[in-house]
Measured scan of single mutants.
Amino acid sequence: QVALSRTQVCGILREELFQGDAFHQSDTHIFIIMGASGDLAKKKIYPTIWWLFRDGLLPENTFIVGYARSRLTVADIRKQSEPFFKATPEEKLKLEDFFARNSYVAGQYDDAASYQRLNSHMNALHLGSQANRLFYLALPPTVYEAVTKNIHESCMSQIGWNRIIVEKPFGRDLQSSDRLSNHISSLFREDQIYRIDHYLGKEMVQNLMVLRFANRIFGPIWNRDNIACVILTFKEPFGTEGRGGYFDEFGIIRDVMQNHLLQMLCLVAMEKPASTNSDDVRDEKVKVLKCISEVQANNVVLGQYVGNPDGEGEATKGYLDDPTVPRGSTTATFAAVVLYVENERWDGVPFILRCGKALNERKAEVRLQFHDVAGDIFHQQCKRNELVIRVQPNEAVYTKMMTKKPGMFFNPEESELDLTYGNRYKNVKLPDAYERLILDVFCGSQMHFVRSDELREAWRIFTPLLHQIELEKPKPIPYIYGSRGPTEADELMKRVGFQYEGTYKWVNPHKL
């Protein structure tokens, strides 16, 4: 086992960053958080920038500027975001240094004079007029057009580079997404736009490419001749908990499936790229999406959770019991969808996408189930092999396979070949997804960000279904809070070829 401390991990990262040409360590950078008073800024962006600063992973002359409508001070920003920093008493001095680099400007999102004030403020910072500028839009999409237009007109660096990070949702359907994309691309070049999907920053999602293309053993079996089906799962054990009003506007397909799960599907299904260059990788992902037809209604199961009468606390409440959810809402909190990649490698292999709230566990994984062994000599005792990439929690890679049961006879039983990170790298604290992705933006690497043509294809696949749901308002199937979801989803999976045995229990190697 390799035991690495946080300091050692960050030392390795620093070495990698400083050796590259793309990370300008000594240049002045300004990180501007648009929507600095909001939840995302408070819980994710400010803490992430602090962790990067604490670990010495930001360029040395980096300033952080918050911008929002609320009249706040840096002290206010500190008060609301610091509880999420997880700072230790030993880091007190470092924390003071961090907040000394912070400033805040209040202004409207659609007022040109406010942006001119913001620009004057940035120019007044040390070497601010020639600094590289990175704008993070932690804002609702309704203000994107006004904000990007004003940034472009008043706040661009004339000497350094300018980059803009856009948070999902990128529209509600193909038409609104196209409108937003066309607007942003009329102001910024594609190499300046970073559409963030934080799932692409997760260690195991990034590991998929290495697993596939750096190991000879997987190449020959990664196709329709050997793989019976692919299941991509995202499960949350909690409901909307008072935030249903926002969720109800989008629903589970827009929230998770059309982005996170579809991105994971691309990494499983794509061909080997010409290189690890950002556009070479994204070219292959677009090719996969172009091979997927629009979702067919007979390959869809929609569910909505109801309270568990035997549960406790939140578990007793259904989705419609959330006071922020519109009365009688038919918005799905669970969806199972089957897609097919219609190309030579994957023809006929079902890709089953499942996601839901208020389920029995927290889990995100990719599961490849292989065909049955031909010419069975073990009297149907063999179960199908599976390769599982567990994204969260407890990152893991393992192969479910058959071995001989101890004893006199040739009785096979299920076991696993474990390729888990935790076994080799004991207690290594890896940077989280937002840390990686923000560092990628500083480096100018777009590999783990969504390109406009990729986004367009993703919406093309799901828009007809979303429009049909909005028009017909089908009643989702009720499922109990804390269950596996509607049984109809299991029946759909069985119908397209997935075999669920229920006889195997994964042993978490992190707890051995």
Rank of each mutant, 00 (worst) to 15 (best):
R367K: 14
L439A: 08
K405T: 15
K290W: 02
L320S: 11
I469F: 09
Q380T: 13
N277W: 10
Q263Y: 14
T403R: 15
T487C: 11
R367C: 13
L471M: 03
P309A: 10
K363T: 14
S293A: 06
E472R: 12
V373R: 02
L455E: 06
G497W: 10
L262R: 01
F351R: 02
K429I: 14
P431S: 09
Y504P: 13
G311A: 07
I469C: 07
L419A: 07
I292H: 01
R390A: 15
E386I: 02
S483R: 04
R456W: 04
K505L: 09
M264Q: 07
V301D: 01
K400T: 15
E491S: 08
P509G: 13
T276S: 06
G328H: 11
P464Q: 08
N385V: 03
V428Y: 12
R367L: 13
C266H: 00
L437D: 15
C266N: 04
M401N: 05
H467I: 06
C291G: 10
M408P: 04
M402N: 15
K357W: 11
K494Y: 11
R390V: 08
D376M: 10
K473C: 14
Y479N: 01
E386T: 07
V366F: 07
S445G: 10
N427P: 14
G375W: 07
Y319S: 00
G407R: 04
K290L: 03
S278A: 05
I352R: 02
V295T: 05
L430K: 13
A396Q: 10
A458R: 15
L430S: 15
S483K: 05
N394P: 06
A433Y: 13
L262P: 02
V338N: 07
V397A: 13
A364W: 10
F410W: 11
G407S: 15
N277T: 11
V366C: 09
R456Y: 14
M402G: 11
T276R: 10
Y481P: 04
G356S: 00
T324M: 12
V428C: 11
P474A: 06
E361T: 15
Q258C: 15
E284W: 02
V281S: 03
E491K: 07
I480H: 11
P326T: 13
W346E: 02
E386R: 01
G328M: 07
S278E: 05
E472D: 09
K285H: 12
R495W: 07
A433W: 12
F410T: 08
E395S: 14
V450Y: 15
K285Y: 13
P476G: 02
L265G: 02
K475D: 07
D255N: 07
P309F: 07
G356L: 01
P431H: 06
S275E: 03
D347Q: 15
M447E: 12
G311T: 10
L492C: 03
T331W: 00
E294G: 14
E314A: 12
E361D: 12
F442S: 00
A332T: 05
V391E: 15
A335M: 01
V300E: 01
V288Q: 01
G313H: 05
A332K: 01
T330V: 10
L359D: 02
Y481D: 00
I480L: 12
H260Y: 15
F378K: 02
Q446Y: 06
R282S: 13
D453G: 01
H510I: 11
S445H: 12
D418P: 14
V300G: 03
P393K: 06
K494M: 12
C355E: 01
D255F: 08
V341L: 07
F449K: 01
R436M: 12
R327A: 11
K287C: 06
E454H: 13
N423R: 05
K287H: 11
K505M: 12
Q392K: 13
R451S: 15
L353A: 03
E435I: 07
P309I: 10
